[in-house]
Design a protein around this nucleic acid. Structure first.
Length: 749
DNA sequence: AACAATGTGGTTTTT
DNA sequence: CCACATTGTT
């Protein structure tokens, strides 16, 4: 087919329609694997090349830095002119940019710093202690969530109606205290970035007018993940004139627990003028079997916007469900199966993903992989910039930029130990609180007024001198040399090197990595900025500043790096798997209580989110999908009986191939009477039966056996010992099955 | 100020 | 069971 424009080549009808839709508000409901990024990128290119829009008037918003980078890269690849001048970034990075540029109007200090969840938690803990508030009644975590929740709804303390509820009243009080502390220290948290920038625009009509005038076209990715604040932010920025293209999938909304509002999709359709809706339902990723299973599963949810994935790739293999005897058996099965498949199908190990609901599940799987010498890579866990040694280093750097950064100061005032113990810090805090000043100022004040002991005063003097000297000595140095100097002069390198075992070594390497990261940042950063009349003069182009580096570190936690070059099996939670695809996928622990997780099982809304999570997992698979579960699992140290997840039952029977039928193998029929699968642990009856069965069985390959349900067959494989011994029997009418000798009623022939 | 003993709780986490 | 945080001990 010949297209009107090369940008429309190799697109299907729906994609083409989305790319070339006339200027106006557009909602693209893009199913998994339907080429949504492609559509987004091509639409932007279309606007520029076909409709002669300036890149300067386009704003593209994503949730992750990775997505932003990918979009920029792909744009530059298809665009004939540079995408410079176009804003592409995450909600947070764009908000940050606005605040940096207009810090004064935003009522911030010029060198404000960003604090992460960890800093936030520490700050809250300190506040609770300082004000003698019971941290049992007000768990710090909950307080942090409450504050973030309020901000995400766009609420400031005075606007919150406590309705006479003393608990709520206290929470709001804490919110106010926390906010005060942040203001004093020049700290801004993630939610604050957004709320502040919204308030900045709302309260400065001229500024708002400027940006509304500029951004005539706004595009948003993963719209189902936006929260109320982000929605309001977009709406404000868009004003009456701008045209929005938003892309999302209500069926892949899995961050509701973090404030994301799927409803924003419908809200957008209803509130933005004459929004056109286009569905991308053709999937280029998975087999029919996988898509039909996913479709069937998600049909159990209510209130969907409606979408059915389809493909012409072909039917493909059925989905295999494996019932592990226990979690170890489940892991063994996964490792055996993936090793065999990689070998037989010629896959790379990185074509294989093992997905799970919670991180705790990775352990058993890891051990099985190690035992089989299969290289693997785990995503998630601690990110680079969140590591202790890195945060220590960054805290020194932050103090160099902003002495008032209490969060940073608290972290490193005695790291490495320099004789400023908890008592001294306690006293300083009290001093700071009484005088309404920051810790940095309190140190000076206390020394001047001699309210600290001589020894403490000396140590404190050394500390403030250290920071000042660092600042002076490094001015004008390239970023990496600057950091290198700070690391050695503060003694951080030595401090971490002295830590016992491998840990110290690893930490030093991470610190060295930080220096390299700074070097890379400096190289990538030079001369990218400029063009914006509202941007500050001077420092714009030229060398990367420490401040820019710190902001980048806060807003982009850094890819998980570790043996990136080795071909390894990919392990991650279902949440982190969103957006990825793999030829071979295992979803482990598909059990009631685990997935859906017990914390989410009662509330219908949360259960539906778990189901969407399962949908996300299933649609990651391109060619073959395995769902596995364990009938017995070690959870929190004790053995628990697990039931297969309801999600397995929701898959059409015709698409499912039970690798080993649950129940047949794991428990004798007699044990299953009383209360279904919650049956008590098989006790005395088990061992007796094992002996009886075991005694009569001669275990040899090729042995003919009879099973009460499957009839006659031949033993083709065996493994294990005692009552855990399992044999693989090739039945005449039922194919191959693994049976546990201790349970299955096999009769030698 | 470092270390052991003891207690507690244990989804998911783009920024 | 195991990772952590807080308490008590030297």
């Amino acid at each position: 087919m010949t297209s009107a424009h090369p940008l429309l080549d190799h697109l299907n009808d729906a994609q083409r329609e989305a790319v070339s839709a006339p200027q106006g508000n557009l909602l693209v409901l893009a199913g998994a694997g339907s080429g949504k990024t492609r559509v987004l990128v091509h639409r932007i290119a279309w606007m520029i090349e076909q409709e002669h829009l300036s890149p300067y008037s386009i704003l593209a918003v994503t949730f992750t830095n990775k997505a932003a980078r990918e979009m920029r890269t792909r744009l530059d690849a298809i665009l004939s002119l540079s995408s410079r001048g176009m804003w592409v970034g995450t909600f947070h990075s764009i908000a940050h940019r606005l605040l940096r540029t207009h810090w004064h109007d935003a009522k911030l200090i010029e060198h404000f710093q960003i604090i992460d969840a960890d800093d936030q938690l520490r700050l809250i803990k300190r506040l609770l202690k300082d004000h003698g508030i019971d941290d049992e009644k007000f768990p710090p975590r909950q307080v942090v969530n409450f504050i973030a929740g309020c901000k995400e709804e766009g609420l400031r303390p005075p606007q919150i109606d406590t309705a006479g509820d003393p608990y709520l009243h206290q929470m709001v009080e804490l919110y106010a205290l926390y906010q005060n502390a942040c203001e004093l220290s020049g700290l801004v948290d993630f939610a604050e970035l957004l709320l502040r920038s919204l308030e900045l625009l709302r309260d400065n009509p001229a500024l708002l007018e400027h940006y509304q005038e500029r951004f005539s076209h706004i595009l948003v990715d993963e719209f189902q993940d936006t929260n109320t604040l982000q929605y309001l932010w977009l709406k404000l920025l868009a004003g009456e004139r701008a045209r929005l293209t938003v892309v999302g999938d209500d069926d892949q909304s899995i961050y509701g627990w973090r404030g994301a509002k799927v409803e924003n999709l419908e809200r957008f359709r209803d509130e933005f003028e004459s929004t056109k809706v286009i569905r991308l339902e053709r999937n280029y990723r998975s087999t029919e079997a996988i898509l039909e299973a996913a479709n069937a599963l998600i049909r159990n949810n209510t209130g969907r916007m409606g979408k059915e994935l389809w493909t012409d790739i072909g039917q493909g293999d059925k989905i295999s469900v494996y019932a592990g005897f226990n979690d170890l058996d489940e892991a063994r099965f996964i490792v055996d199966t993936l090793s065999r498949t990689v070998k037989e199908e010629g896959l790379s190990r990185s074509d294989v993903a093992i997905l799970y609901r919670s991180n705790a599940q990775s352990r058993v799987l890891e051990e099985a992989l190690i035992r089989a010498s299969v290289p693997y890579r785990i995503y998630g866990g601690h990110r680079f910039y969140e590591r202790l040694e890195i945060k220590n280093a960054l805290s020194y750097l932050r103090l160099m930029v902003t002495r008032n950064d209490d969060a940073a100061l608290e972290r490193v005032i005695n790291v490495p130990a320099r004789g400023i113990g908890s008592k001294s810090v306690e006293r300083l805090r009290a001093h700071a609180r009484d005088e309404g000043m920051t810790l940095w100022d309190a140190i000076h004040d206390a020394i001047a007024k001699k309210t600290v002991s001589g020894r403490a005063a000396n140590a404190l003097t050394d500390f403030v001198n250290l920071i000042d000297e660092l600042d002076n000595e490094t001015s004008g140095l390239p970023l990496d040399e600057l950091i290198d100097h700070v690391l050695s002069k503060t003694g951080l390198i030595e401090f971490h090197r002295a830590e016992p075992g491998e840990k110290g070594q690893a930490r030093v390497e991470n610190l060295e990595e930080l220096v390299s990261a700074a070097r890379a940042f400096a190289q990538g950063q030079t001369g990218v900025r400029g063009l914006d009349p509202f941007e500050p003069e001077g420092e714009a182009a030229g060398e990367a500043t420490l401040e820019q580096f710190l902001a980048d570190a806060s807003l982009d936690a850094g890819e998980q790096q570790a043996d990136e070059y080795e071909d390894a099996v990919q392990m991650m939670t279902l949440h982190s798997a969103k957006g990825l695809e793999f030829p071979l996928v295992f979803i482990a622990g598909v059990e009631e209580g685990l997935f859906p997780h017990k914390m989410s099982a009662e509330e219908p809304g949360r259960l539906e989110e778990e189901r969407r999570l399962c949908y996300v997992g299933i649609t990651r698979a391109m060619k073959k999908l395995y769902l596995t579960y364990a009938e017995m699992r070690r959870l929190h140290g004790k053995e628990t009986y697990q039931r297969p997840s309801r999600f397995i039952r929701e898959l059409p029977a015709g698409l499912v191939d039970e690798v080993r039928l649950r129940g047949q193998v794991s428990r004798p029929m007699a044990e299953r009477s009383s209360s279904g699968y919650r049956a008590q642990k098989p006790a005395s009856g088990l061992s007796r039966q094992t002996e009886a069965e075991g005694a009569g069985m001669t275990l040899s390959l090729g042995q003919r056996v009879r099973h009460p349900m499957f009839g006659e067959g031949v033993i083709v494989n065996a493994e294990g010992q005692g009552d855990r011994a399992r044999v693989q029997v090739s039945f005449e009418d039922h194919g191959d099955k693994w049976l546990v000798l201790g349970f299955a009623k096999l009769e030698a022939l």
